[in-house]
Design a protein around this nucleic acid. Structure first.
Lengths: 242, 242
DNA sequence: CGAAACTTTGAGGTGACTCAAGTGACGTGG
DNA sequence: CCACGTCACTTGAGTCACCTCAAAGTTTCG
């Protein structure tokens, strides 16, 4: 049963990216796969190691980050349920970054050899995996822009917009309802700011009626204002890829 | 003859990423391909369009960039001869960024349908294309870190390190000999700084004996010092991917 | 040769940082 | 069920890295 849950999540994910036929779905359900329940703040991928299995996030949230030699941390992406966490290692041996849960989570492990094999046998699956990897890359590019060329307010707003949209398309409820599973430290590491400045900036977003709440639970008050504060356009997420 | 030059460059590129057999190379040489000579500062890919051909950079340099809604430009990668410029559009229809030459260049155009087909027929070619795309993504991640968490000096130094290493592995001569084909404006747009500040920072790199030259032609004086100013570790380039 | 593009320099401003102290929420164990 | 430790949030004062704007050199190229 556990196994099937993992492969079902994978099927759902790939269906959003390409048109799978029965044979494709059958092939997926023949994969091996082991579920694991993981606490918050546990590493799923560690820089310098050579993962043999591919990790799929079933429940909970995770982030991908790198460390600078001076010890500063930079989060390079967030992940929501349904995300494949390391297509990277299907073809590259050595991990060049960390992936860590940020909430309690459930993940599925699939041997990367098997995934590589089915991708060679089934064109539709290959297409879906390609799209997923290319969308990831597109998101990284947007983050370079975000961190490089936006000021603190729009930078944070943009990160929130992306988070909300991705939660939504992962089927996690309406944007206005989302309670951020992120600490201000994590927001700081994702935006290239400091926690203190994130705190002050969140307060101006409150004051401007973009967000409500405060403390450890913010909600989006006005999606329109959030979008416009961010200058957010979701073309880069390629949600229409299928 | 023109056609062959393009496909030869592609073969060389893919050979660096996976072990190709004769059949693989034969398949590549059957592709259609048209060469084009392009001036500096011409667009090869335009945001919002749907490219039908895949662009390969044969000679010269190019950069990939995005615009923020407020009109600021962020370069997200540089490209050297041999680079495939838009694996992106093999599986995603719509361009989410621009690619522009930064020197006079020669590029080859290959129909993306054909490339997609041979990737499905020849596992080794598929593997090479995958690796290329995944390495690109890895570079984007490193840039997020660079722009998000390094100060101006190490940020510029890091960008230079990467540029030098990639030129080298493209067979463009020793690092000490490379003359930067970049304006300070472009360096600024790549690092998330302003041209004025880039200028001042380059001067401190001169003063510290990291670079020599000045004006529009810098050279690396001490590769060791440049590396250490940058905190540069090239694992993320996955040069050993083959 | 002249215009355009790039580099250089200066003076003044500011967004975000640093460091430090204090507050509040939560979970855990006695 | 309260005491305590931890972790995250909040706030303030002072500082600095980098920005803005502007003008003057310099190189490039058509």
């Amino acid at each position: 049963v556990a196994k099937d849950d993992g492969l079902l999540a994978l099927t759902k994910k790939l269906r959003r990216l390409a048109r799978l036929d029965d044979a494709d779905e059958q092939t997926i359900s023949d994969l091996s796969c082991s579920l694991e329940r993981v606490r918050a703040n546990r590493h799923l991928i560690i820089e310098g190691t050579q993962p043999t299995d591919c990790c799929l996030l079933i429940q909970g949230f995770a982030c991908r980050y790198k460390m600078s030699p001076s010890g500063a941390r930079q989060i390079v992406s967030f992940h929501v349920p349904g995300d494949i966490l390391d297509l990277q290692h299907l073809y590259l041996a050595c991990a060049d970054h960390y992936v860590q849960t940020i909430t309690p989570a459930i993940v599925a492990w699939i041997p990367k050899v098997q995934l590589r094999n089915i991708s060679q046998q089934r064109p539709a699956i290959s297409e879906a995996l390609w799209k997923d990897a290319l969308i990831d890359a597109s998101i990284f590019r947007e983050w370079v822009l975000n961190v490089g060329r936006r000021d603190a307010k729009s930078r944070i707003a943009h990160m929130l917009c992306e988070f909300v949209v991705r939660c939504q398309s992962a089927g996690l409820g309406s944007p206005l309802e989302i309670r951020l599973p992120l600490t201000q430290d994590q927001i700081a590491d994702a935006t290239g700011l400091t926690a203190a400045h994130v705190n002050r900036t969140m307060q101006t977003l409150l004051a401007e009626g973009v967000l409500t709440g405060g403390g450890r639970s913010y909600r989006v008050k006005s999606w329109r204002r959030l979008r416009s504060a961010a200058g957010f356009h979701q073309a880069y997420l390629h949600a229409d890829a299928a």
